[in-house]
Write a protein that binds this DNA or RNA. Structure first.
Lengths: 136, 136
DNA sequence: GACAATACTTTGTATTATAAAGTTTCATCG
DNA sequence: CGATGAAACTTTATAATACAAAGTATTGTC
């Protein structure tokens, strides 16, 4: 007979413990984006807010991209945007909202988990079978 | 006169030091993606490789998504994929390549910088002007 | 008052993540 | 032994969106 016997059915694989272990649900799409991550980190480091001009430099973004990303962050309620009507030129000032700071902190804590997970030092092996080791 | 005097031209903003400070260039598009980050972390934790089935559970992905993401990671040279011809059913085994492990480690080190940056404790203020504090 | 420059915003396109449907092989049941 | 179901993927299609290029508006300068 060429096919295996039916005795080893329903191999449970990975025991279901650890299911979703690496799904990282906390990585919110809005924050988990290179450019916006930079913006948020900049604003977290400057709690009094930053000018459009400054953000542009710090994050090395073009005007268009920065504008777009700020809109996204604003709509998500993460930052607040102040249009300067007083100055000689239009000046846009951005700050983290209280909620934004909270959510960003949460996001960062998930990132910390990712960093920890990536150190394979003392991780218990999660696999199911020994597997035929592929010949390198 | 309503407009400002011309004496304060060319305000240098942010001194140019710290330009690009938050651009996070090291955040490679291929790796910086929720789902693929999970896959890579799983594989980093299981250096002998993982089965498609196991990855699917660990990362809580649908068949289609996992398949697609693995293809992307494969094409980027980050993982290697072994098709099991020996077993009773098709079995796909995935492992980090040597290069993949190296690049992932680099990526993680950037993530660590992000995490550090997000702790605003002892950060020097990067702004240019005191700014008219917006009334809350 | 023409010309360049600053400080943005809007629009268009090309990429891509995800879901839905499709394929293939094996096991089981009447 | 043909039908049915299920496991293990792959392919296709669509909806979202990141980025670049073009546009707008105000200001300063010659």
């Amino acid at each position: 007979m060429s096919h295996r016997a039916s005795t080893d059915k329903a191999q449970p694989a990975i025991t279901d413990a650890g299911a979703g272990r690496f799904s990282y649900d906390g990585l919110d799409r809005v924050m988990h984006e290179k450019a916006r991550l930079g913006i948020l980190a900049s604003l977290a480091a400057n709690s009094d807010g930053l000018l459009f001009k400054d953000l542009k430099q710090l994050c090395a973004l073009t005007d268009g991209n920065l504008s777009r990303h700020l809109t996204v962050l604003d709509e998500a309620g993460l930052v607040e945007i102040w249009k300067g009507a007083s100055g000689p030129r239009p000046q846009t000032m951005c700050r983290l909202t209280a909620n934004g700071r909270r959510r960003f902190t949460q996001y960062i804590s998930v990132l910390e988990r990712v960093v920890t997970d990536a150190q394979p030092s003392t991780q218990p092996d999660t696999r199911s079978q020994p597997l035929p080791r592929p010949t390198e």
